[in-house]
Amino acid sequence: MARPARRGGGYWVYLIPSLVLFLVVIVVPFAMNVTTSFTRWSGVGTPTWVGLGNYAKLLRDERFWASFQHNVGLIVAMAVVPTIIGLVLAAALFDYIGRRFGTRTASALRAAYYLPQVLPVAVAGVVWGWMLHPSYGAVNQIFGLKVNWLGDSDIALATVMAVMVWFQLGYPVVIFMAGLQRADPALHEAAEIDGASWWRRFWHITIPQIRPEIFVVLLTCTIAALKVFGPIFVLTRGGPGSATMVPSYFSYLNFFQKADVGYGSAIATVLALIIVVVTFLFLRLQERDS
């Protein structure tokens, strides 16, 4: 039994179950999706080969471009804004509140900011769908308003963005606070003795120390924003009109409602490509940075 281990040799067998499963669940379906994107297909019968037809159609489709613009808005709401606010909050909690009011106060506040993150994102949508209901919703009732938050195409996207900031904010706060715990307190103390203001210390010491965390948060939140589906489905279904249409919902629409599977596949393929490229760009940046 105890043959001297051929380096690496026999360990391959442990990968076999995954190999089979990944082939069935990821590789083959993805290849099928890419192939289907070159066809016209309703989901039944034989697909017709149309070459790059679906992609040419995409480039001319205003809804497709609009959906990516909305995606940019959601990246701002889910990645950029939470990172910026999260940095200030984490630093304030860690070296201001934590020191002057005790770590318990800081932890309690952190838990409050984090709580929305524990919800399934669809449930967060259910909560806000109710809060923002035009006739009986709590927000309009409390403030005596008659705003159709999700049904008015001028403000629907802004409303969804605000909901996503609420949902996402706790994640960077938790990650950044953990990063600050790892950081060296001596630097901070030295700067404080030198009379550096809180903002200067925040900018020159805190932020550089948790750069790896900032990268990770920006990457994961950007990907989450590119993939966003649940809140759109629950809150607006991409509407009114296509005011909150995003690529993932747009592909879903083509797959399961318009029976335009080829076109849906093309949208999904583009989305996948963008996400993979964004991931690699971030990782390259991070590598160069460290």
């Binding site: 289907t36 999904a268 996948a272």
Partner: peptide, 19 residues
Amino acid sequence: FLVANTLPQEALVYPLYYL
């Protein structure tokens, strides 16, 4: 595995549904 993890489910869903 990293790529498999980042792929959007949208790019797998129809074939999975079909299969």
